[in-house]
């Protein structure tokens, strides 16, 4: 598995079906606030921005985690959350420059997209084609991720 999600703001209609699909697949309940992908509506509906973990190279979210619950999986390069370790402090939620981390206020834990282990459900249900699962390297399409990388790397 070597893919990554990319979102197309222009195509997103803001229907938020992805949020429902994600919460059903991951939490077994239709509860959009507990989705790992979120559609942020800005500027009175003019911006519809699908946001999710971009699996950055030098993630600020992992740096601020006080319990080492956010870790890079060396074999896949994915940034994964260990939900057992997570104490729900929300440091990662506030630190991500890309709205990449959600928060589950039922379980009191962070929410992070794991790409459904290579078969992301949101992509399949997005009729507008606004979410795509593409090759991770090289990722010329993914300017957000590139921008995040520049922010904080030793």
């Amino acid at each position: 598995m070597n893919g990554i999600l990319v979102a197309d703001m222009e195509r997103c209609t803001g229907c938020k079906l992805c949020e429902i699909v994600c919460s059903v697949k991951k939490e077994w309940v239709s509860d959009p606030p507990r989705s790992r992908i979120r559609i942020t509506i800005q500027r009175g509906g003019k911006n519809r921005l699908p946001t999710f973990c971009q699996h950055c190279e030098e993630p600020l979210c992992a740096a601020v985690c006080p319990v080492n619950a956010v870790r890079k999986d060396e074999s896949t390069g994915l940034i994964l959350l260990d939900r057992e370790l997570c104490v729900g402090c929300r440091a990662c939620v506030s630190a991500c420059p890309l709205f990449g981390v959600g928060f589950d206020s039922v379980e009191n834990k962070a929410l992070r997209c794991d790409l459904c282990h290579g078969d992301p459900a949101c992509v399949k249900y997005c009729e507008a084609g606004a979410i795509q699962y593409v090759d991770r390297d090289p990722f010329p399409t993914n300017k957000q991720r590139a921008a995040a990388k520049k922010l904080y790397s030793p």
């Binding site: 911006n47 991500c96 300017k143």
Partner: peptide
């Protein structure tokens, strides 16, 4: 707060940032 970190780190004149066309690299900030 995180969403605005990128814009803070760029340290640019916000007046200019606000009028230019947005690009995907801007993120949610």
């Amino acid at each position: 707060v995180g969403g605005l970190i990128g814009i803070m780190l760029q340290g640019k004149d916000l007046r200019k940032t606000l009028v230019r066309a947005s690009s995907p690299a801007d993120g949610p900030g």
